[in-house]
């Protein structure tokens, strides 16, 4: 407990020192993230895909499935939107169909890795990472080939008409109603994981699959379920991004949401609600860095540096925590003898 306080104090001291040294840059960044409704909207727009991918990853990780394939699942979700719109542009509930398609595509894509793991023993981390690259190549092919916009002049898909896109509370900003999926899914997943019997079984499989097995719980079934749901949520993040901000698919559609979601999930303490908070923090950093970039102070890759530093400190704090836990569990081992 004392040690944790020391860490908080240290973090506050570092932040204070940074503000003193880089004061004006910090204030530019803060203005970029929070100063007015434009800034806040920018922060929220950037937070939503981070939160959704992180929530998706958490669902899989809680089941012991280390899904690192967020990027691929998100791209497949967006690709499904582009494909459905191309094949059936006039469905009765087109927007719902696009979103459902993105979730199904992301979920199915994640299930490939899950089935490779449960049936053939392919390491889930390796499987999902490699599927990321395949997804990137598929998108790259699709936007230059079968799904390219009608004039065939730029490598991107046809733009959605405005009425299919999510509505915007303020037409001058990028903020769209699709961001609301993030808090709704965060709450839903929290309830599912922590308040239902199935969520409990998934967490048990993730914590100790042998204990689950001894209790006659089918570990592979629950691994498959959590991977499917994980991929569906991340695929949906791709669909929401598609329907909310761009309206078309292109090579750089995702600036790495699937990867950025990993530290967001970790810093959110592997809890969907925590991920919501940490996604907001990182959304603010992304928005703020954009402002810094505009002011010529920094490059947008600063985001990655900040994220890396935060993650490093977080893991350090975790290491200190587990080592003190281990020290206290020695009492227990001692008391076992």
């Amino acid at each position: 407990m004392k040690r944790q306080l020391i860490f908080y104090a240290l973090a506050a001291a570092i932040a204070a020192a940074a503000c003193l040294i880089f004061g004006d840059s910090v204030s530019i960044a803060a203005r970029g993230a929070f100063a007015d409704s434009f800034a806040v909207h920018r922060t929220l727009v950037k937070s939503a895909p981070l939160a959704l991918t992180a929530i998706g990853l958490i669902v899989a990780w809680r089941g012991g499935m280390f899904n690192i394939g967020g990027e691929g699942q998100l791209l497949m979700g967006a690709l499904a939107c582009a494909l459905i719109y191309r094949l059936a542009p006039n469905l009765p509930f087109e927007r719902a169909a696009l979103l459902a398609g993105s979730a199904i595509a992301g979920g199915t894509y994640a299930l490939i890795a899950a089935i490779l793991y449960t049936k053939r023993g392919v390491n889930i981390v390796i499987g999902t990472i490699l599927l990321n690259f395949i997804a990137m190549q598929i998108v790259s092919y699709a936007v230059r080939g079968p799904l390219q916009e009608p004039t065939h002049s730029i490598p991107q898909t046809a733009s959605l008409p405005r009425e299919l896109m999510f509505g915007r509370p303020n037409p001058q900003t990028d903020l769209h109603w699709g961001v609301l999926f993030a808090p709704v899914l965060a709450v839903a997943c929290s309830i599912w994981l922590f308040r239902t019997a199935q969520g409990f079984r998934i967490r048990l499989v993730g914590s100790n699959f042998r204990a689950a097995r001894a209790a006659r719980i089918d570990a592979d079934k629950h691994r498959t379920i959590c991977m499917g749901v994980s991929g569906a949520i991340i695929g949906l993040a791709g669909g929401i991004e598609f329907l909310g901000t761009t309206g078309y698919l292109y090579d750089g559609f995702s600036p790495g949401w699937g990867f950025l979601g990993i530290p967001v999930a970790l810093l959110g303490g592997l809890h969907p609600l925590g991920a919501l908070a940490s996604a907001f923090g990182f959304g603010a950093i992304i928005a703020g860095t954009k402002q810094l970039e505009a002011a010529g102070r920094a490059d947008s890759s600063l985001v990655f540096a900040i994220q890396g530093a935060a993650l490093l400190l977080f893991m350090l704090a975790q290491a200190v925590r587990t080592s003190s836990l281990r020290a206290s569990s020695r009492i227990v081992e001692g008391s076992d003898a």
Binding site: L204, N208, R210, A211, A214
Partner: peptide
């Protein structure tokens, strides 16, 4: 096989 050691006692009973 018996317990998930990093889960709470409550969760272990819930098995």
């Amino acid at each position: 096989d018996g317990l998930a050691l990093d889960m709470s006692m409550q969760d272990n009973l819930m098995i």
